[in-house]
């Protein structure tokens, strides 16, 4: 049984996608071309909710200087002032406007996330698909590499890497991308393996198409949803992990990001002075971003794997029947 990978705590990774299966009743399954998938996505409440949040965030990132003008690092008032009309989220332990920091810091946090997601996904595609496509010795070697990097705990490695390398924004992105790729690679490898044995791929290979064409034109489109899902997961990972590194003081503490706000909150003992506004908002923003991405991922899971869908078909009455007893219910005259 192809396992659904557990949702990794704290970080959102998509489940291993196999083809929709396990339909005891024997109906042929409709395929899921991209168009159909997109239509279903826009109809799904969770996706819409997640998507809205993301769009709002993109908006904030784009117009940050307009929404919260001024120098985020400037000292504007007394330290640790609670929220007021003038400073919507109060002031930090060093007298900076938390709201301005939050809005302007969104750029660093979210963009880092996006880049990390991109790097991890691209690397994952390259390694995963190569392993899945060629199989044999290539696959064995790459699989070992993948698994080794999956098993080595990420955080200590990240910490040491970030400590040794120069403190630039690029370092963080690079380092995170390099630790994030194995998860994607594994998923893509699994899917490539299963897609590869399909007839149309064999047909293309026999027909003499070049390897690249086969990979990109035949195999990749089928994995579009998985790649998209990995990308979203990678972005979520990037956002959370970046915050973690900044929190440890490993990032560039002279920039403003959600993570650095938290770093200063911890270092200025904001918690111990009751200044909840110094750490609550950035954490909520990070969570919101990660949550919306995960939500979309989770919904895509549900759409492509009908078994996981929360059972809404048949209405509430039927649901109660199924809960009460495992025996097939008798509902006369059900239309």
């Amino acid at each position: 049984m192809e396992a659904n990978e557990p949702r990794i705590p704290g970080v959102t990774a998509p489940s291993v996608k196999t083809r929709p299966d396990n339909n005891n009743i024997g109906l042929p399954h409709p395929k899921y071309p991209l168009r159909d998938l997109i239509r279903k996505l826009t109809q799904n409440k969770k996706v819409v909710a997640g998507g809205t949040i993301l769009v709002a965030m993109v908006f904030v990132v784009a117009f940050a200087p307009l929404i919260a003008p001024g120098d985020p690092m400037a000292f504007v008032a007394q330290a640790n002032q609670p929220p007021s009309a003038e400073h919507l989220l109060g002031t930090s332990g060093q007298g900076q406007d938390v709201f301005v920091q939050l809005i302007r810091g969104s750029r660093v946090s979210l963009l880092t996330g996006v880049f990390v997601g991109l790097i991890a996904t691209i690397l994952g595609i390259i390694v995963g698909m190569t392993a899945g496509y060629f199989g044999g010795a290539v696959d064995n070697i790459l699989s070992v590499v993948m698994n080794v990097f999956l098993v080595i705990p990420g955080l200590p490695l990240l910490v040491v890497l970030a400590a040794f390398l120069p403190r630039t924004p690029a370092t963080i992105v690079l380092v995170l991308g390099l630790t994030g790729w194995p998860g994607t690679a594994r998923v893509l490898r699994a899917q490539t393996l299963s897609v590869r044995t399909k007839e149309y791929v064999s047909a293309a290979i026999v027909g003499g198409e070049s390897i690249f064409r086969v990979i990109f034109a035949e195999i990749l489109p089928n994995m579009a949803s998985i790649v998209a899902s990995s990308l979203l997961g990678g972005i979520a990972f990037g956002i959370v992990a970046e915050a973690g590194l900044e929190f440890l003081g490993l990032g560039d503490t002279s920039r403003v990001s959600w993570g650095t706000i938290l770093y200063w909150a911890q270092n200025n003992a904001g918690l111990l002075t009751g200044a909840w506004w110094t750490f609550l908002p950035p954490g909520l923003c990070i969570a919101l971003a990660a949550f919306s991405l995960t939500l979309i991922n989770y919904s895509v899971d549900e759409i492509t794997n009908p078994a996981l869908r929360s059972q809404r078909s048949g209405g509430a009455i039927l649901r109660k029947l199924y809960l009460r007893s495992r025996a097939t219910p008798v509902v006369p005259n059900e239309k």
């Binding site: 009743i25 029947l321 199924y322 025996a327 097939t328 219910p329 008798v330 509902v331 005259n333 059900e334």
Partner: peptide, 18 residues
Amino acid sequence: TIAQTILRVLRPPAVITG
């Protein structure tokens, strides 16, 4: 379907309607 219905082990979302 009939086989499983006789024992009433047919899985949801199946229902016996008559």
